[in-house]
């Protein structure tokens, strides 16, 4: 049986890595505007520049973001024992959005440059960690308290975002709306490097804790009785999840649905064991968002569909079918 599980985990891992790799290799070649592949092969402008500086970084950003959101979603579902938990459940996405929206609304010049918005979004996500840790010092917290706190943070941040939005001028209001729609844009390779520095170690930690997520999904009483320090692990999971969600949200804006639908979809296929489900969710989530982003920028080209719309329209019906077909 041990061999069976190992074999299944290795197979699922290999398949999801292949899926992520194939989408990452193929999708940069697909686009709304035609591409001269001969020029591309000869590395001639403008096709080579478009490929190298726009499509490849965009694909890599989708890969990293999808992996982070889907992995964090799977972990939160175990940690909070809530099937509807998403990367947004703990208020991180809303707080990062509030940070970004504040930067756009209050930046002295009309066009807040992107590093400022990213930094402000990161500060928003970090503020949630500081707030929750301060509350955690004051009294014992459980995953349930964490979830309710997240709902409250979501509500408060959304209210302040609406207030700032309503007070902003037309230009800034448009910028706020655009940021809140979320989306995958081309970024510099250094940004991708920094994102990878945050996402890869956090994902490795999540995977190493897979057996603990399994036992935590039985409930805290059972997990405590099996030697798991639930308070410590919940706190660590919260911080790691915040790093994953905060860093990606800072760069892409809020992208919904990936963290909910991909883990659930894969759970139906590979089962509930986090040793199999987590790697599948991380690589599968990456592949899923790359495909959704490619569809977003090609299906109505030259108009781009927000990637959150594509994730919902593509994943939603398939998820419902899977749910009812089994």
């Amino acid at each position: 049986m041990a061999a069976d599980l190992r074999k299944q985990a290795h197979w699922v891992m290999a398949l999801s890595v292949i899926a992520a790799a194939v989408t990452a290799v193929v999708c940069p070649f697909v686009g709304g505007s035609g591409m001269d592949y001969a020029k591309l092969l000869r590395q001639e402008a403008p096709d080579w520049n478009i490929f190298l500086n726009l499509r490849v970084p965009r694909t890599l950003l989708a890969l990293l973001t999808g992996a982070a959101l889907s992995g964090a979603g799977a972990m939160f579902q175990a940690m909070l024992r809530d099937a509807l938990a998403t990367p947004s459940s703990l208020g991180v996405t809303a707080a990062a959005s509030l940070g970004a929206v504040s930067a756009i609304a209050f930046y002295p010049s009309d066009d807040a440059s992107f590093p400022v918005v990213w930094l402000a979004a990161l500060c928003g996500a970090a503020a949630v960690i500081v707030l929750v840790s301060a509350l955690g010092q004051a009294r014992r917290f459980s995953s349930f308290t964490l979830l309710l706190t997240g709902i409250a943070i979501n509500g408060i941040c959304t209210a302040v975002i609406l207030l700032l939005h309503s007070m902003a001028g037309i230009t800034r209001s448009f910028q706020i709306t655009h940021w809140l729609m979320g989306g995958i844009d081309a970024v510099e390779y250094t940004v991708l490097g920094w994102l990878a520095v945050a996402i890869v170690p956090a994902s490795v930690w999540m995977l190493r804790m897979a057996r603990v997520w399994n036992v935590i999904s039985y409930g805290e009483t059972w997990a405590i009785g099996r030697g798991v320090d639930c308070r410590k692990v919940t706190w660590q999971g919260f911080v790691v999840g915040t790093v994953l969600v905060g860093t990606t949200t800072a760069v892409t804006g809020p992208i919904g649905f990936v963290g909910l639908i991909v883990p659930h979809l894969l759970r139906k296929v590979v089962g509930p064991d986090y040793r199999v489900l987590l790697p599948a969710s991380i690589f599968g989530g990456g592949a899923f968002l790359v495909v959704c982003d490619t569809i977003s920028r090609t299906v109505l080209a030259p108009v781009e569909v927000p990637v959150g719309v594509t994730t919902a329209l593509l994943g939603g019906p398939f998820f419902v079918w899977l749910l009812w077909a089994r």
């Binding site: 599980l5 985990a9 057996r211 399994n214 036992v215 409930g219 059972w222 009785g225 064991d273």
Partner: peptide, 30 residues
């Protein structure tokens, strides 16, 4: 410890539930 109330909806098999008893001896992947 076997508490009075444990969630009855866990999606794991009997073998997997029994193996949770080995968690105090290390949380390596397998």
């Amino acid at each position: 410890h076997v508490p009075q109330h444990v969630p009855r909806d866990v999606p794991f098999t009997v073998e997997e539930v029994v193996l949770t008893g080995r968690i105090p001896y290390g949380v390596g992947l397998y």
